Computed example of a mutant assay.
Amino acid sequence: MNATASGSLTVKELSKKTWSDFEAVLGTNGGARGCWCMHWRLSIAEWTEGKGEGNKRAMSRLAQRDPAPGVVVYENDTPVAWCSLGPRSSFPRLERSPLLANIDDEPVCAITCVFVQKKRRGSGLLPAILEAVCEYAASAGYPAAEGYPIEPRAGKRAGADTAMTGIASAFLDAGFSEVARPRADRPIMRRKLRAAR
């Protein structure tokens, strides 16, 4: 499945065709600190060694494989966000995380990064992005989507590197429910998905 639409948002898999749009969303730094969305896919040593161009090359290789490592989200043909997703097994660092350990054996679509283009942050677009991503995940056959957002303390704002997994309130607005809370600021949230007709 390559593209799905939710309202005014369209979702397309990351591939050679959408690579320049992915770059436009992540910017010259590749998201936060040269990550290029390899944080959950590599050990900390591998991630640090590849920081910047190395991580970018690694993601470029993943973008040429099936399944796609994530989706670019568009609003009226303009790329506005990136979402890294797939089975938990695609994210070795997530699988090893004592904080975000697997809570059961349900085959979820893990949403590990939701990166909104800088000029669109704070616009209230995140719940709609998550809705579009869930439609994509349902069309790909996943029974549930699972997110690992941050819940900033009252009056505090999360920075780009801590907010990469999303904000808990946006997940709630997109129909997710909390299924675990391993730390005060880190809920694990899920949403049941309906199969595409």
Rank of each mutant, 00 (worst) to 15 (best):
R183C: 09
G166Q: 00
A110F: 15
A128V: 10
Q117K: 15
G166A: 01
G159N: 05
L94C: 03
L130M: 01
W82D: 01
D77H: 09
A158V: 07
D77T: 09
Y74C: 01
A110W: 13
V80I: 15
W82F: 08
L100D: 13
D173I: 03
R93W: 07
C113E: 15
R183K: 15
E135Q: 08
L85R: 14
A81Q: 05
A174K: 03
T165N: 08
V108N: 10
P187C: 12
P79W: 03
V116E: 09
E75H: 11
I129D: 05
P149Y: 06
L100M: 13
L99A: 11
P87E: 14
E131V: 09
K119P: 11
S89G: 14
E146M: 14
P182T: 05
F176Q: 08
A163G: 12
A137G: 07
P87N: 13
K119E: 13
R120C: 05
F171K: 06
D185H: 12
V179F: 10
P149W: 01
L125F: 04
A145K: 02
C83V: 15
Y142L: 04
P107H: 07
R186K: 06
M164D: 05
A160D: 07
P92E: 08
E131K: 12
P92C: 12
Y74W: 11
A160N: 03
V179N: 00
P87S: 14
L130G: 02
P182Y: 09
T112D: 07
I103Y: 13
P87I: 11
V114I: 11
G175K: 13
L126V: 00
P79C: 05
E151I: 00
D104T: 02
K118N: 12
S177T: 11
K119W: 10
V179T: 14
A145R: 02
A145L: 03
G159P: 00
S97T: 13
G86T: 14
